[in-house]
């Protein structure tokens, strides 16, 4: 059993989900990007997973991610939806080298530099937000 993370605040709102997600945040709060995997085989699962379908009912393990990733897709927001986000800005779908997909953003000085398939590395901003930068 992994210990439950202590009470904490996150940059955005209150998280409501299963214990599985609680563990993800426990590591994230310590600046560690981890991904869920099968407790029996170590096979990577997506962040959508709450159990390994081949070993149902067992708690997932959380393996440290290398931080290496690939840009799967990206979009550029021109529409302003929130005062906290000044367009244009990019939202990306990245694939960790281990397989899991996640939404993030890529830090680039020029949005035209974004190309699907480009290699990325993870980076924690001072406030704790996970971002990716081109390698």
């Amino acid at each position: 059993m992994t210990e439950k993370s202590p009470d904490k605040t996150h940059p955005v709102g209150t998280w409501i989900d299963t214990d599985t997600v609680e563990k993800f945040h426990y590591y994230m709060d310590r600046g560690e990007l981890r991904y869920p995997c099968c407790p029996q085989t170590g096979t990577a699962l997506g962040y959508t997973a709450r159990q390994c379908p081949k070993h149902p009912g067992e708690d997932l393990d959380w393996a440290p991610a290398s931080g290496g990733a690939t840009l799967e897709s990206f979009v550029i927001y021109h529409q302003r939806y929130s005062p906290d986000f000044e367009p244009p800005y990019n939202v990306a779908m990245v694939a960790l080298d281990e397989g899991p997909l996640m939404v993030a953003t890529v830090l680039v000085d020029d949005l035209a530099k974004l190309v699907i398939g480009m290699k990325l590395i993870s980076h924690f901003e001072p406030a704790g937000r996970l971002v990716f930068v081109p390698t």
């Binding site: 709102g13 998280w15 997506g46 959508t48 529409q79 986000f85 939202v91 990306a92």
Partner: peptide, 21 residues
Amino acid sequence: TGIPQWEVQYGMFGAAGPYAL
């Protein structure tokens, strides 16, 4: 992504962004 509210911190509001991806 599968982590509740995860996308908020990147400004992925609305349906257009997810479909545009």
